[in-house]
Amino acid sequence: MTQLYTALFTILIGIGAAVVYFGGSNWLLDRAFPVRGPGGRVAGDRVAGDRVARNIRLAGLIRPWLFLGPAILALGIYLVWPVAASVWLGFRSRDGSAFVGLENYRWLVTDPVFRESMLNNFLWLLVVPAAATFLGLVAAALTDRISWGNLAKSLIFMPMAISFVGAAVIWKFVYDYRGEGEQIGLLNAIVVALGGSPQAWIALPFWNNFFLMAILVWIQTGFAMVILSAALRGIPEETVEAAVIDGANPLQIFFRIMVPQIWGTIAVVWTTITITVLKVFDIVLAMTNGQWQSQVLANLMFDWMFRGGGDQGRGAVIAIVIMVLVIPIMVWNIRGARAEGGGP
């Protein structure tokens, strides 16, 4: 319990510090560059008026940086600097003490487990965003037209709240395999009921990847559904009505009229899930820990970070590979945000 009190105490300290910083720095700024005369009235004479104008300008120059300061500091320490440091560590030895040039990269391209991870990650990238987006689109389109659609949406969306590890436990039970006796895993029970022979699904090289992917698809479909559902509702009525008058059937209306109008949103959903896929770590760690040829980049990186005391150089170059794979999406996002305009 003590640690919970410590946590609550820390929250108070944190909020207090934030209030003191933001309030205090603002108070100081107002004192240093007063823009109001005594009693709150703007000073009347010209000399004072010039000073007030100058003070307003100076305060306006400084204030944004007071507001932004803590955020920039935290982002700098926790995201910007580490990216640069990781690139630097990629050229150094396992404890970071010596420069080794491209040695880590040379190791990377010849490492069979890395190749396996790349191949698996490629499969994940191919299957998961497509499957989750498609299922989400179908779920959005279907649930929008029935009376209990909101309840259905809630239930499909729910896995989003479950941790990857929790989901791994849930699905490991579905995939459970018994050498003898009654199968208590749902999948094997169904297979047996249909006359097949039970399998240890997550230990089947190559195919086990797909059983792991199913977990992420299960989690991400709700996300895709929620966003695509909102986009579908935003489609102007007239376009659909025109198609109805022209005699299009519901399927044609959906794929020819509605889907093309939400391509932008589909792309956003797709790329968001793609990034999640690249970072997938918990599911693989909990299900197989990379055994039976199911290794992926993020888990491999974690492995090298701690294996035998940790190899910083090799861990860093694997992280850099993940980063490089993300960069196209990053550039596309930034372009999108800039095209939209920097502000109101």
């Binding site: 120059l61 995201l79 990781s86 850099i320 993300v326 930034i334």
Partner: peptide, 27 residues
Amino acid sequence: MRFAGRGLLIAAVVGLLVVPLQMALIP
């Protein structure tokens, strides 16, 4: 608020949104 570098900062935030955590861990 209007100040120099605002557009750049917004772009930076959008970019940082997708930086994989893995990049930050070792350093």
